[in-house]
Design a binder for these strands. Structure first.
Length: 673
DNA sequence: CGAAGAGTAGTTTTT
DNA sequence: CTACTCTTCG
């Protein structure tokens, strides 16, 4: 982060407001931190303050974030200030990882066995599919999302009925009931359960509540505006009457309402804790004035609860560029070329640049365009390492060893690599499981050999069961040896080379070895058992090495994934009606009195997304939109986003009047030489 | 049972 | 255009 000007700070590098936020420990504290106002600095300094000067023991301090990356960064920054020794025992992680830990430690009270599984979204969707018996993907996702929203609103299946309206919601409710029952039968939890179940448990069980409240003496929450009702409930139970906590957030950057977050939690906090000290951070240390002013104008179109006015003394900066391109292909090419020219012209590094967009699929064209000009880049988000089929294959084995009752893992493990067990055999097992009410594995174990159509199937199943039981008995061993034996037993490497082309097999096997390395390293570093490792993997979205090595590369990122980051130069692409704001989110606020009108309209959230994107930029901001864009099959005409008008740029001789197409041709010529 | 082929549907954001 | 699903054949 850029060093603040000397005049406004004292020796400790904090301004008055920031210092107040760090030092205030007497009661509940809410820090309203505008974009670029030094939020991370405050939160890490406060942790250092607690652990250092105030003598809090690390194991009594909990800091919660939304992403693993944010947690890791926070950890490092605090360590740099207080040293590794004082950090031992500190809980600094995501809501989900804290929830997982609580469930693990209190598994008996929660009605779970120690090796319970954590299902990822794909497994959850598969379960909804089997329950709903349809292949309509849109419908399946809608049901899954509805269930997720109910959980985030802390509604059990029994309670959700009161909030379900219409045949579709009632159907979703029916699925919700059986969904939870099936999870319990599998001894599995889904992502949302990692918050939902701990919150319920703390509400119901006074002993558990007392245990955790005694343990947490101070709690800090980052990105508080993105908490759901469920997460807020969890927080309240953890905080207890002591109410020693600091929440940091910015209602203007709330962009996760679609997954159950309610920025009402900000106003709710003042109601629930009348002693709440509210501190506003309004000086922006990131962006030049032109950018900040335009962003302020855009966000001013939203109704706002807290009157923050961000200001900056970093100079006015260059005008914001807005250009229109004929289609997304040209847009991507022009970004690539302007990027090249910019880097040269400003003598900057590649990593000083970011290209931001609304939705993931936009990355494709940009990647192509950048690759064509040999511009190094990294893509944030996108498909995760742990989503790769070869990784899911191996993980299915490990998950099954940890919890033989988890049917999704069973199905995957028993069918890959192919071992003569297919649809027919699985149907046999499913029938038995349905009859006895047990898991597929239990069925495989119990079913006599003559229950299968062919003897071959019976043998294959029996052998698989033997394997599994043998591995299960070795759960206590070191992860490395067990893992190697699993790979050996499955013959996975040979399977890859048998079924794929040489090249592909080699990369995939490489991934498997990477996974092996990662698991073994984790096991050693943090002293985790295989069971713990397997549970944690569901929460890890990216391999950690990916941002450890910091190559000099342009960052391609969705707006959502860009939150919390900053770049000297930002290109914001696809700023059109229908994309940003996204289709179906353009309705004007106010008219309908439906439930989510209270939560603020979707348009407002899209506007905040624009605001987040703009405020990532430190020095220059380039915005582009396309006159035509391919949507599905057909080309459609597009109009510039209303947010461009809302920026209120002075109509000058700047970029608006330049002919981008001509510029493009000129640049193209330039690059040829 | 499993692999290769043809046809078909699909585009928001993520822990 | 691509990725995935369902179908058909060995």
């Amino acid at each position: 982060m850029r060093a603040p000007p000397l005049a406004s700070v004292s020796h400790d590098g904090l301004n008055d407001r920031q210092r107040e936020a760090v030092r205030y420990l007497d009661g509940p504290c809410l820090v309203l931190a505008g974009a670029g106002s030094g939020k991370t600095r405050v939160i890490t300094r406060k942790m250092a303050y607690l652990l250092g000067e105030c003598g809090y023991l690390a194991r009594h301090v909990v800091a919660l974030t939304f992403t693993n990356k944010a947690a890791r960064e926070m950890n490092e920054r605090v360590r740099a200030q207080v040293g590794a020794r004082l950090l031992r025992g500190l809980t600094c992680g995501t809501f989900h990882s804290l929830g997982l830990r609580l469930l693990r430690e209190e598994h008996a009270c929660a009605g779970l066995k120690p090796g319970f599984s954590v299902l990822d979204a794909a497994d959850g969707l598969a379960m909804v599919q089997s329950l709903l018996e349809t292949t309509d993907r849109a419908r399946l996702r809608a049901v899954q999302q509805q269930i997720s929203l109910w959980k985030n609103a802390l509604l059990a299946p029994e309670d959700a009925g009161a909030h379900a309206a219409g045949p579709e919601q009632l159907e979703a409710l029916r699925i919700y009931h059986s969904y939870q029952a099936t999870l319990q039968a599998w001894q599995a939890v889904d992502f949302d359960d990692l918050i939902y179940r701990p919150a319920r448990l703390l509400a119901q069980d006074a002993d558990v509540r007392a245990r955790w409240q005694a343990r947490i003496h101070y709690l800090l929450v980052d990105e508080y505006q993105d908490t759901s009702a469920c997460q807020y409930a969890l927080l309240k139970y953890l905080i207890g009457d002591r109410a020693r906590f600091t929440a940091v957030g910015d209602d203007d950057q709330a962009i996760y309402a679609w997954r159950g977050a309610t920025s009402e939690n900000l106003t709710q906090l003042a109601h629930d804790y009348p002693a709440l000290r509210v501190i506003k951070l309004e000086q922006n240390y990131r962006s030049v004035q032109r950018i900040l002013q335009a962003a302020n104008r855009v966000i001013a179109h939203n109704p706002r609860h807290f009157g923050k006015t961000l200001w900056s003394d970093l100079g006015s900066g260059e005008p914001i560029g807005v250009i229109a391109m004929d289609n997304e292909q040209l847009e991507a090419e022009s970004v690539a070329m302007r990027l090249s020219a910019d880097r040269f012209g400003r003598a900057a590094c590649w990593k000083d640049f970011a290209v931001l967009y609304r939705s993931n699929h936009q990355a494709r064209l940009l990647e192509q365009a950048l690759r064509a000009l040999h511009i190094p880049y990294t893509v944030s988000g996108g498909q995760s390492f742990f989503d790769k089929p070869e990784i899911r294959d191996i993980m299915a084995w490990l998950r099954l060893i940890a919890n033989v009752d988890e049917d999704p893992a069973f199905i995957r493990a028993v069918t890959t690599p192919r071992r003569g067990i297919g649809q027919g055999t699985l149907q046999c097992l499913a029938a038995e499981a349905a009859r006895s009410g047990g898991s597929l594995f239990a069925a495989a174990r119990q079913l006599p050999a003559d229950a299968f159509p062919t003897a071959r199937q019976a043998v294959a199943v029996a052998q698989f069961v033997q394997w599994m039981l043998a591995f299960q008995g070795r759960l206590g061993e070191r992860a490395a040896g067990l893992l190697d034996d699993v790979l050996q037993a499955t013959g996975y490497e040979a399977h890859l080379y048998d079924t794929l082309e040489e090249r592909q097999a080699r990369t995939r096997w490489g991934h498997v070895l990477e996974l092996r390395e990662w698991l073994v390293r984790k096991a050693q570093e943090e002293g985790l058992t295989l069971v713990e490792l397997v549970q944690r993997v569901a929460l890890v979205t990216l391999l950690e090495r990916s941002d450890e090595e910091a190559p000099d590369a342009v960052k391609l990122s969705t707006l959502h994934a860009a939150k919390g980051l900053e770049f000297p130069h930002v290109y914001l692409v696809g700023v059109e009606e229908g994309l940003l704001p996204h289709r179906g989110h353009e309705e004007d606020p106010g008219q309908d009195a439906s439930a989510d009108a209270a939560r603020g309209s979707r348009l407002e959230e899209e506007r905040r997304l624009m605001y987040v994107g703009m405020t990532r930029a430190q020095r220059t901001l380039q915005i582009s939109w396309c006159r035509r864009r391919r949507r599905g099959r057909e080309d459609v005409a597009c109009e510039p986003s209303r947010f461009i008008a809302e920026m209120g740029l002075e109509a000058g001789p700047a970029a608006a009047t330049a002919d981008p197409q001509a510029t493009l041709a000129r640049l193209r010529q330039l690059l040829k030489n």
